[in-house]
Amino acid sequence: MASKNCIIETKGLVKKFDNFEAVKDVSLCINEGEIFGLLGPNGAGKTTFLSVLATTLQANGGSAMVNGFDVSKSPDGVRKSIGMSFQDNSLDIDLTAKENLWFHCRMYHIPENQINEKISQALKLADLEQFADREIKKYSGGMKRRLEIVRALMHEPKILFLDEPTLGLDPQTRRALWEKIKQLNQEKGMTIILTTHYMEEANELCDRIAIIDKGRIVALGTSQELKKSVKGDVITLETRNNQAFAGKKFKFVKNTKLHNGEISLTVDSAEKRITEIVLFAKKSKIQIDNINLKKPSLEDVFLHFTGKTIREAELSAEGQFAERFKASKPELRAR
């Protein structure tokens, strides 16, 4: 039974490309009116997951309901409820900004007498008024990004999907966009689902965050809850003999992870434990090159659940892609 306040609900959702499962058995409930973040490295399946929800890809298994509509049975109902800004360009590069916005208003049946007003608002919001009549092919990457996002907001959808909204934006623009997203959420009660690689963005914006890795949701909760699940602070060490540290069973260490020439120890009250660690190093004659104490961040949460930092996960995902790329059929590559 669908719970009342899930505006988006997926059950065992699967999306395959040939034999490769890009989304694996995802079950998720997104509440009405929340800002929900999907955090994960390249190739985690974020875009694929959103595309299934937005009806541009069809699922191979499981079910997904968006605003009470089944994505496979009534895609038109879903499309009427959503707005989406894509990770890659979806503007018509031969048209000007104004023409692109006009087209969007028409597709979403915005009344004729409001269209001009809407277009000027959107251009103002994107800070692109001077470039309104310039063709998109002459736009910079950041300008396109901005236009793409304001376009998705124009028809004030009930549910807004933003795929990597701030990728490639300069810091001020990114801040301004965060404010806008919060404002839309608070004033219009818009449900917003966004994907990101940036820990700080998820932390700053999202009511709840799902960490997604290799097509699976590995953790879900508020940023506070997720940080708590790491259960403690993290001491990061770089030593000449990390193995020795990993082997040593400190009583107070809850979790030890070796990765990328560093060792991470999860402990409570790290301030007090750090001396014991240094003493152990001294006794065992292991030189410490670097020692670091951190209160948990989402980065650590990611590490905790996947055993990798987000950077490492991206590198291995790229490697995996390269393999698949070589093996894939030519028509896949042409896309």
């Binding site: 937005a54 038109d76 499309r79 009427k80 894509f86 890659d88 979806s90 503007l91 590069i93 969007h104």
Partner: peptide, 13 residues
Amino acid sequence: FGFLKEMLVAPIP
């Protein structure tokens, strides 16, 4: 060039 996506998510049969 990606514009097809804009058309495909629009509520248009």
